[in-house]
Design a protein around this nucleic acid. Structure first.
Length: 194
DNA sequence: CGGGAGATGGGCT
DNA sequence: GCCCATCTCCCGA
């Protein structure tokens, strides 16, 4: 499937259009334990300007440095002492924007996801949240800053998404700029975070 | 079933 | 010390 990897051109657009374009694409992790993958069904845009919820809002630090790298790389951070969140870096190098991936529809490696997340979980609960999907896909800080255009972690062309099947809302779990309509998701998908 | 609290650790206000 | 782009468990209904 590597011939369907999304290349540099895919990432050459503004962050909001990229957050929309990422819906339906396939996120793949070829780990030593096996391959897991899933369609991206929920994203959030985090912008450099007028967006206090964005980690890059107060400038570049050691933690958020990957956000300021070239687009098409990963920005992974650790939160609440337990969880990782996976983002696709967007905008030109030096700007500091990214798209948070909040939920996946599992495709390959469902059994491996269950082993990682806990066998008692239903399929609908494996990747229906940013922390959950990182656990199921085994994505962690070691992936921070790496390219998403080659194995082991990469994005590939997925399923076609009609504009009419996409809905928008405020972003989840933030205390600032909750009113901004920067969350995008596939309506009625079983694997949404909410 | 929904709401609330605790877990847990890194970064910064 | 307090905050945080979260998850899970436990409780009451």
């Amino acid at each position: 499937m590597e011939f369907n990897i999304l290349n540099n051109y895919f990432y050459q657009r503004d962050t909001v259009p990229l957050a929309l374009a990422l819906l339906g694409t396939l996120l793949i992790h070829e780990s030593t334990e096996g391959i897991t993958s899933g369609f991206i069904i929920e994203t959030e845009a985090y912008l450099s300007k007028n967006d206090p919820a964005c980690h890059a809002y107060r400038g570049k630090t050691k933690r958020n440095a990957a956000m300021f790298g070239p687009p098409g790389r990963a920005y992974v951070y650790f939160i609440y002492g337990n969880h990782h969140c996976f983002n696709v870096v967007s905008a030109a190098e030096g700007i500091g924007e990214a798209v948070l991936v909040r939920a996946l529809e599992p495709v390959d490696g469902v059994e491996l996801m269950k082993e990682r997340r806990g066998k008692h979980h239903k399929v609908e609960n494996l990747t229906s949240g940013p922390g959950k999907l990182c656990s199921a896909m085994n994505i962690s800080r070691e992936h921070n800053g790496i390219s998403l255009q080659k194995p082991p972690l990469y994005l590939a062309k997925g399923k076609t998404v009609e504009k009419s099947s996409i809905d928008t809302s405020g972003r989840i779990g933030i205390n600032q700029a909750q009113d901004k309509p920067l969350r995008f998701f596939l309506k009625n998908n079983l694997f949404l975070s909410r």
